[in-house]
Nucleic acid binder design. Structure first.
Length: 722
DNA sequence: CGCACGTGGTTTTTT
DNA sequence: ACCACGTGCG
């Protein structure tokens, strides 16, 4: 065994890595070497002879994490990881379903619907079922279906107590039937189908249980119910489930993640002692102390306190801006100074709670000539032109795929209008056939389209993937379509052409790298790894992203922006149960991204949804110990509760711009205006965000820190200015 | 068919 | 403010 594997590990890490064959829960704090432990554990198991690479199943959430694991593993061990089962839940389920497509009752070349494809499939179905999409918004139906599947439930198993839900269940059932007819599966179906395959087929289940002696899971706190059931099934009675996670970083409950799985795991797998990795190798002391103080306000934690052997380092820098624009200006100045001090732009990140906040920041960065990259935009394989190109390939692979057919039957336009398509759909329904079969029986332009697909298929049958791609782009008319674009759309089309060219490159790369270089494999890759294909990493550029997408990353300097009540924590989170705790974990994630320097900023007013909104400083900022903070602007300058004079000198340009007459001030000494901080006996502290009416009818809208937004009649409500 | 205009909505996101 | 989407017209 390679003993150098263990060198440099702290006692807890070492304990985790060298555990005997037993299930374990590793509570791994931010920056505590989680990925290192996971990969070293695998390397340890293999090199000590406990298990062969063949017997390992390692599961992650993102392709990036899976790739990272493989990279680190190959650096540690001279083994071929190709035969190993390391991947995302979806990737691994796909792999099993491909291997056992018959048992899973799927066509060999089943295609995967991404969320966009799924939504259009649902819309199409609802139209066919005559469902009112006002009463049943397709997006809601979509999340109902995915949500149910992620709970492990089929339509027949969902409990519906009201007509509304019953109707959604009907749509759910029809939707699954439609997918089955068309030979496609959506993301959650990959998991559910795989789960059902294993639970119904004892021979297969036993085969895999026999094989995967060690199952390792990353980011376990993010697993949903179905994923946990799937893991339990594979673990059986004898295999070791090694789960690594951090309940304090659970920020995806809104999409079905169930932190409760951590407690369930300790029960179900009789985990005696949870190993805690609490030494943080990332951040300076003050940053960690702030993070610890913040998260200690959450209840129901498994309990864990990060520490570091590093010194305290700098205090956290706090900046109160008058407006969002000023906030951005300040950040830009700081970045320029940091740059002069020798910090690379790549080592800095600007974090925000919601994507809309990036605009102002971007604007300031552009004016200052600073290069940046916004993460989480439109992904390569989700671009319209790419989806069109892939739809041709999909239809060639599987003519049952009505979704693909509808996408391209008239793109580029070939004179097949809405009417012809409707007729086609009627004919298909009448004869219970696919659209493609119906089209084959039609005449004129429609059958010409069928001919096109068939000729594409026969012409490319023997070709390698990149050449198939080339041929299809050419002969489908896609290239010509974008080349012919002139005028306003010219630029856009040029970019699309570049992307199509890039698609051929992607196919070439894929053929070189993948074990299986078939067209089906490439299409799967496109659905499952839509985001992986992004260019332009090399440039020294700032990182702009939401706090969510920052999870797992670290930077020398981090700016957490928009620390205002209602924004972060977000307004909508207050309605949901446990919403505020999740927001706090989000803030915890944000804080722990920084290694050396952390900026926390907020603005007194900002543009939101097209109008000026006035916010109060985030309660999260107040939860940080004063001693760790360095206020760049005077502490709560304009809002000290005992000093309104400085507040009143602020120029609130549009305070009465909405046309409310001056006499909306019933109390002689109180000047009610937007932005005014007030106190209410019952609701507590708040800020006026709107004024309406006059005299006895005057009402003000107050955004209360605790109670949320309320309209109050000034005649009755006892408000005091603070 | 494609454009122009109107409407609604607007937390977070991976697969 | 801004964007995506849908409808109605030329």
């Amino acid at each position: 065994m390679n003993s150098s594997l263990l060198s440099g590990l702290n006692p807890e890490q070492r304990q985790a890595v060298t555990l005997p064959h037993q299930s374990a829960l590793i509570l791994a704090g931010a920056g505590s070497g989680k990925t290192r432990v996971l990969t070293t554990r695998i390397a340890y198991l293999i090199s000590s002879g406990a298990v062969s690479p063949h017997g390992i199943l390692a599961v992650t959430f993102t392709n990036k994490a899976a790739k990272e694991m493989v990279t680190r593993l190959t650096a540690m061990l001279p083994i071929n990881t190709r035969g190993m089962w390391i991947g995302t839940f979806h990737g691994l389920c796909n792999r099993m379903l491909r291997a056992h497509f018959r048992e899973a009752n799927l066509p060999q070349t089943f295609q995967i619907l991404d969320s966009g494809d799924q939504l259009s499939a649902i819309k199409r179905l609802m139209k066919a079922m005559n469902v009112d999409d006002e009463k049943f918004p397709p997006r809601e139906v979509q999340s109902f279906i995915s949500g149910s599947k992620e709970q492990g439930l089929r339509a027949s198993e969902v409990e519906a107590y009201d007509p509304y839900t019953r109707r959604k269940v009907e749509i759910f059932a029809e939707y699954d039937a439609q997918c089955q007819r068309e030979g496609v599966v959506d993301f959650s179906e990959l998991l559910l189908r795989c789960y059902e395959l294993l639970s119904r087929n004892a021979a297969l289940r036993e085969h895999y249980q026999e094989r995967f002696k060690h199952i390792l899971v990353d980011e376990f706190q993010d697993t949903n119910k179905l994923q946990y059931q799937w893991l339990k099934l594979l673990a059986g009675n004898n295999n070791a489930l090694f789960a690594v996670g951090d309940d304090d970083q659970s920020i995806y409950a809104f999409r079905g993640a169930n932190v409760g799985n951590m407690q369930e795991l300790t029960r179900d797998f009789h985990v005696q002692n949870v190993i805690k990795l609490e030494q943080n190798y990332r951040s300076h002391g003050n940053i960690l102390d702030a993070a610890n103080a913040l998260i200690s306000n959450n209840r129901n934690r498994l309990g864990k306190n990060l520490w570091t052997s590093e010194s305290g380092g700098e205090q956290l820098r706090v900046y109160e801006a008058e407006t969002d624009v000023d906030e951005a200006k300040f950040i830009v100045e700081e970045i320029q100074q940091l740059k002069r001090d020798g910090v690379n732009l790549t080592e800095m990140a600007l974090l925000y709670r919601s994507n809309a906040q990036s605009r102002v920041l971007e604007h300031a960065l552009v004016s200052a000539g600073l290069s940046y990259r916004v993460y989480g935009g439109l992904r390569f394989f989700e671009r319209q032109e790419i989806k069109h190109a892939l739809a041709y390939l999909r239809l060639m692979e599987n003519t049952d795929d009505d979704n693909a057919l509808l996408r391209i039957i008239n793109f580029p336009t070939r004179g097949i209008g809405t009417r012809s398509i409707e007729q086609l759909q009627e004919a298909a329904k009448m004869n219970s056939t696919t659209l493609f079969d119906a089209a084959a029986r039609a005449g004129g332009k429609v059958s010409a389209f069928v001919g096109l697909i068939e000729s594409l298929r026969s012409a490319t049958r023997e070709l390698p993937l990149p050449e198939i791609m080339d041929h299809v782009l050419d002969h489908s008319g896609l290239i010509a379509h974008y080349q012919n674009e002139t005028g306003a759309k010219k630029r856009e089309s040029e970019e699309r052409l570049e992307n199509l060219n890039e698609l051929v490159n992607a196919a070439t790369m894929f053929v070189h790298e993948a074990e299986d270089d078939s067209l089906t494999a490439f299409l799967t890759h496109a659905s499952l790894e839509a985001g992986e294909h992004q260019a332009g990493d090399s440039e020294d550029a700032l990182h702009l992203m939401t706090v969510h997408s920052a999870k797992g990353l670290e930077f020398h300097t981090v700016f957490i922006t928009g620390l205002e009540e209602g924004l972060f924590p977000h307004q909508n989170s207050q309605r949901e149960d446990g919403g505020l705790d999740e927001e706090r974990r989000l803030m915890y994630v944000a804080l722990t991204r920084a290694r050396r320097r952390l900026y926390l900023s907020f603005a007194q007013r900002r543009m939101l949804h097209g109008q000026v909104s006035y916010g109060m400083v985030s309660s999260f900022l107040r939860e940080l110990p004063e001693g760790l903070l360095h206020w760049i602007t005077p502490r709560f300058s304009a809002r000290k509760t005992f000093d309104t004079s400085s507040f009143e000198t602020n120029s609130y340009v549009n305070a009465f711009a909405s046309g409310a007459p001056e006499k909306t001030q019933p109390l002689p000494h109180a000047v009610w205006r937007i932005g005014q901080r007030v106190f209410h006996q019952k609701f507590g502290e708040g800020v006026i965000t709107g004024i309406e009416g006059s005299g006895a009818d005057a009402r003000v809208q107050v955004n209360f820190k605790r109670a949320g937004s309320k309209w109050l009649a000034l005649e009755y409500a006892k408000l005091t200015a603070v």
